[in-house]
Write a protein that binds this DNA or RNA. Structure first.
Lengths: 239, 239
DNA sequence: GCTCGTATGATTGTCAACAATCCGCGGCGT
DNA sequence: ACGCCGCGGATTGTTGACAATCATACGAGC
């Protein structure tokens, strides 16, 4: 008796707080609000067309995610990440994506290969076009769908949060983009490892990708203009 | 010129939203609000002596953590976890605690051994006294401090959330406690692995602990009174 | 007898105003 | 000239009330 009504989403959309949180997350990710910037409640509320009530709820959600820092009677500020935070984000990402990758390899990986290949194609296209932001978008989607393919909602949520923080880091130095060739090559290696179902190679490639990326970020951080080869990891210099 | 004023917390305490979020988290953890229960805003707000504004902010924080589920114009409900969620919590915990354990072993593990030994002693005392809730508390603290000793704030936050969910699972079947002897033994093995700095043994012990625990939980779930040995993992039976 | 439409009660979503607190600036005293 | 004190402006924290929405119960119609 059933038609194909399987995937009809009910009209009851999400709460406005969730929508506002998404909007703000996107804005922070894009760098619209630079790290350390104060988020005035009234301005943002009026700009989004909502009152301060829902806006504050959305802010609390972002605080729980660690994207904004709340100082009592001072205001809400976008968290600025120092070098230690960058390393921390990538160690956490390594832990989450490793677990997700193992689940993907252990399960049905055909669908995963499809979506990963699609994201990889977008990366290649963006790299060819020299579009840094599209490249970052595709990179983001690659890792997002890798974790999503694991079928673990908790790993997925953690990865989403961490990926937003990753974009925050990258937005701070988007004038100094990573070499697209290496990036694409590393992701292709990841896709290949998933395709072949090679656990060990997937894990090794993933961890190498993480350490490489954090090195790429931190090496160029201290002085964005000079590209000296390898200053041995400055202690804690802020971005 | 400095006295020992290092750890003086400023008078400006945290926002009330954070406080009520902590309070609610504790209540959910203890099982005061059973899974699936509706959380009436006015009742809880009046009971806590705050208005609905801060309470809603705290609720959004808990929603972001995945502890409560919000249905638009219906209300807020404590998330009830089925068997798949239990497995998911423990796979995520395994990923996080594995990474944290590796960081601990790679770094200065003397302090970690101290706090882990203290938590282990509490577990032994609770086990000897037959106090199930104290045992669960000590267990909680053991894993919490293991991750905290890694020095990674993001792993710490993830672990805290996951540990609360773990307690939610356990609260649902606290009338069917796990055998204390095995629990203590496994944690002692974990502490020993950390003490000896044996990466491989630590990881192996950790993953065994996780799979053992999830098996303990799911085996007794279908019919809490009958303790048949090993029904091979019921597909998705709710708690 | 069953189903559909309607009234009702309660709960959530939203808003605008009030109170408390903090930062920056000018004036005063030393 | 330097430091302390108080004030003004602005922002956040909180509150209570209003509007929108949904679940339930009851009665009419087929």
């Amino acid at each position: 008796m059933e038609l194909d009504l399987d995937d009809l989403e009910p009209v009851s959309r999400r709460s406005t707080a969730a929508i506002v949180a998404d909007r703000l997350r996107h804005a922070i990710m894009r760098g619209t609000f630079p790290p350390g910037a104060q988020l005035g409640e009234v301005e943002i509320a009026t700009r989004l067309g909502v009152s301060r009530g829902p806006l504050r709820e959305a802010m609390q959600r972002l605080v729980a995610e660690g994207l904004v820092r709340s100082e009592r009677h001072r205001g809400l500020f976008v968290r600025d990440l120092d070098a230690a935070d960058v390393r921390d984000v990538y160690t956490a990402r390594a832990a989450v994506e490793r677990a997700a990758g193992l689940l993907v390899v252990a399960g049905d990986r055909t669908e995963a290969v499809v979506v990963l290949t699609a994201a990889l194609a977008d990366m290649e296209a963006a790299a060819a076009a020299g579009d840094a932001v599209a490249l970052a978008d595709a990179d983001h989607r690659f890792h997002q769908q890798l974790v999503a393919a694991s079928g673990s909602p908790r790993l997925r949520r953690m990865a989403d949060t961490l990926l937003v923080e990753t974009r925050m880091c990258l937005a701070a130095l988007q004038d100094n983009p990573p070499p697209p060739a290496e990036l694409v090559a590393e992701h292709r290696a990841l896709r290949d490892a998933v395709r072949d179902g090679d656990e060990a190679r997937l894990v090794a490639t993933l961890e190498k990708h993480m350490t490489d990326t954090v090195a790429r970020i931190l090496d160029v951080t201290p002085s964005p203009r000079s590209s000296r080869p390898h200053p041995p990891a400055p202690p804690d210099q802020p971005l």
